[in-house]
Amino acid sequence: MTLEEDYYRDMLRIRRFEETVLDEFKRGVFSGTTHTSIGQEANAVGVIRQLLPDDIILTNHRCHGHFLAYGGDMRALFAELMGRQTGICGGRGGSQHIHYKNLYSNGVQGGIVPIAVGMALAEKQKKSEAAVVVFIGDGTLGEGVIYEAFNMASLWSAPLLIVVENNHIAQTTPTEYALAGDIRMRFQAFGIPALELDTSSVMEIAGNTFQLMREVHEDYSPRALILNTQRFGPHSKGDDTRSEEVVALLKEQHDPLAIMERQLSSASVSSIRSEVEQEVKAAFETALADPVARMEGRA
């Protein structure tokens, strides 16, 4: 399998996983909430596939793609969302609170950024050579604590890559209603070099991230990557306030899967598709049959 095919498959796994989640939500298989990254798969795969084995990932509410790109087990993610004992965290965390190997997520915007800085500093202190990547959205640029974290990351030279997935919307609020000035300048104010990419091409994101991670590892200092991207799905479930035409146009112009499909042979696309289809189906069915999580402690 070529790298292109490999990345395509990883993105498709995320896409099909999340489409299944949204579909099955309607049927009551899942409960609670979920946030899908349909349209943003190139960010997860492009960035995370450049990490070294010991590197660390901090992620947010929109974390399924990051988990799957990191190599997380699809059945365990389904099971976590279904509240099964076999879930990543035994059903305790659900969609936005997971820990697997060196990946940690939490559902409160902004709070993971200082934690990422602390982890980066700990690894540096231990001389482990691991670096940290933290994912935040454009809306999270409104949280004050991240600027305390940027300051300390730069001040103490934390080996950290801050990835802003700017999907131009936060829940229902367009970025221009919430964000003053220029995102890059916010990093530059703290002496953190920032690169901005306007692309849904996984290969372009991958190449640039590879370079940035090399700098982070070699210079032991933070970098920022601003990824201008598009969310095709609802914020959560059925809560998209944008018109269908607007979303359809975004998908036509920015679909990371379509971009890759144009570069691959139709034979390999269809074989990858059927492989992923089988994987998703098997993972879903296994998780569905798994035992429901039980609470202990009430006498």
Binding site: I56, P114, I115, V117, G118, M119, A122, E148, L155
Partner: peptide, 25 residues
């Protein structure tokens, strides 16, 4: 011993990250 900026919220997060990765802050 690390002297810090006046950033209580950020520091709580930074020390939490250190603790999760094996230090005793």
């Amino acid at each position: 011993v690390i002297p810090t900026p006046i950033s209580e919220a950020g520091l709580a997060g930074v020390t939490a990250g250190m603790a999760l990765r094996g230090l005793r802050p």
